[in-house]
């Protein structure tokens, strides 16, 4: 805890790890980690003022509504909650968001999306899970499709991905599938993360002043 940045940072940040450590372990630079702290602070003090991100705070930031239940947001929250404490601390926030950095390896994005869609955590994406995901998407959007259309979409996609035809998509099949269908991972890259120091310039001004 010797340097200026850790004094500025560490004691206040729940789940505190030096920004330098987080930067070296993730796709972020030290400046980007520091800029992310500004976003983290805003989210983690939005409802329950304890410096941790609770699910309602996550939903509020995503939907401008803290009560909006959503299967996808639940899944993302649970995957961000690496220590399984029911809340997201700063370390978890940075490590998880790093997967969404445009520079993060595609293998990380592929693995994260697989976990996201493996709803029951069996190590496979099953057809029932895919159906559930499609129905949840339709539910949150204004898109209305008949049951038979939903079945056709699910069957068609599933058979493309389940290349060995054993009724479940394993991680290798998923990897092959996203190679052929890169648009399926489109949401896994956030250009914002590359510009994060521009979005939260106040921290950078302080960092530069410090140097």
């Amino acid at each position: 805890m010797g340097c200026a940045s850790s004094r500025q940072f560490g004691a206040r940040a729940a789940g505190h790890v030096e920004p330098e450590v987080l930067a070296s372990d993730t796709s972020f630079t030290v400046n980007e980690v520091e800029a992310l702290y500004e976003l983290y602070k805003r989210m983690s003090f939005s409802i329950i003022k304890d410096g941790l991100i609770h699910k309602e705070e996550f939903q509020l930031a995503l939907f401008r509504n803290s009560k909006k239940a959503n299967l996808f947001a639940d899944r993302v929250f649970d995957l961000f909650d690496l220590k399984r404490t029911g809340v997201i601390d700063f370390e978890e926030f940075v490590r998880s968001l790093s997967v969404f950095h445009p520079k993060a390896p595609t293998s990380e994005k592929t693995a994260f999306a697989f976990k996201l869609y493996d709803l029951r955590g069996t190590g496979y994406i099953e057809k029932e899970e895919l159906r559930e995901l499609v129905l949840a998407l339709l539910d949150e959007s204004d898109l209305r499709l008949s049951d038979s259309t939903v079945e056709a979409i699910v069957d068609n996609t599933f058979s493309q991905a389940d290349s060995n035809g054993d009724g479940k998509i394993d991680p290798e099949e998923w990897e092959e599938f996203v190679k052929k269908n890169p648009a399926a991972l489109r949401n896994m890259s956030l250009p914002y993360l590359q510009d994060i120091t521009m979005a939260f310039p106040s921290f950078i001004t302080r960092s530069e002043a410090k140097d």
Partner: peptide, 25 residues
């Protein structure tokens, strides 16, 4: 034809999966 729609592409458009909104003020 709707049956050629890719389910995973469709899912990736979910609002709950589009974390870009976290960065919009």
């Amino acid at each position: 034809r709707p049956s050629v729609m890719n389910a995973f592409e469709l899912i990736s458009t979910s609002q709950g999966l589009n974390l870009g909104t976290l960065f919009e003020k």
